[in-house]
Amino acid sequence: MQKVYINGSSVAVINSAQLDTTEQWIKINLPKIDSELVPPAATRRMSKAVKMGIICGMEAMRQADCPNPDGILVGTGKGCLVDSDKFLKAIIEQKEDFLSPTAFIQSTHNTVAGQIALLTKNSGYNMTYSQGRISFESAALDAYIQLTMNERASLLVGAVDELSDISIEVNQAIGEDQVNDTNGIQTEGAGFFVFSNQKDSHTLGELKDIDIYRNTAGHSSEKHIGEFLKRNQLTINQIEAIIYSSTTVEAPFNTVSPTLEKISKIKYNSQTGIFDTDIVFAFDLALKRLNDQTFSTSISLNEGKKQHDRNILICNFGEQNSLMLLSRC
């Protein structure tokens, strides 16, 4: 079985200072796309989701020096929401007359993956997963399987979610008491990574394993984490940090277990706000920590003891849960 390395990483999330607000929705400030990278004629129809995908996707491929991976996999919780909303609204307001096709074309969930393929002339595997908060992990699992089975050698794997003014209005109209079911500020963002089964000078870490599961009565997350580590021949003591997100009322760590107590636990949503695929930030953060990079953030990256075996566990708890194990190589 081949190993899976991460050879490039690029993430776009809001600036955490933007979170100091009473607003419930915050949009990302996106730089203009370099016209050398993408001709203006090509960007004129692109929604923010597509632009975020292209900016991060191209940057990750540049970092990894991998301009033509064997495929592109994208996860997105809500898809191309802005164009989807735009077309839906036009149907209602214009009573199904004079509808412009552009928004419909761009509303398709696989627009981001398709546009990256189109721009980079990539005729490889092209996949789009959409499953709420485990959309990125669904794409990552597919990539992981194909790379370990040596079906492909390198894949661009990422995720993107955008906010839409129309959806914000619709949400607001529903009423305050129902607005905020996830207890946090809703944001948008993207993250793309080059996964490869070849280690090289660009390698940032190894994705040792990934799992997606639902909790059942007899099977808690804590139990599941134990089994996950065991199948990777690790004990909890060999994990130097857990970076996690939780949309369930109680994260499994709240019931403090003595073994988990010693490990630094970072709940990253204070940096990113909440969007369906915000776990890409945790993925990037873990890679940065594994490479001892310092960068400005209020999250204390280097707390907790560093160990000989550098392993970080990324957890996503919600309707479905995911575990990803990243290690330094």
Binding site: R45, L99, S100, P101, T102, I105
Partner: peptide
């Protein structure tokens, strides 16, 4: 101007509307 087939559809809508 470098327009494409999607633009042709948009122009069709414009003529109608």
């Amino acid at each position: 101007l470098g327009l494409d087939s999607i633009d042709a559809l948009e122009l069709t809508v414009l003529l109608d509307k």
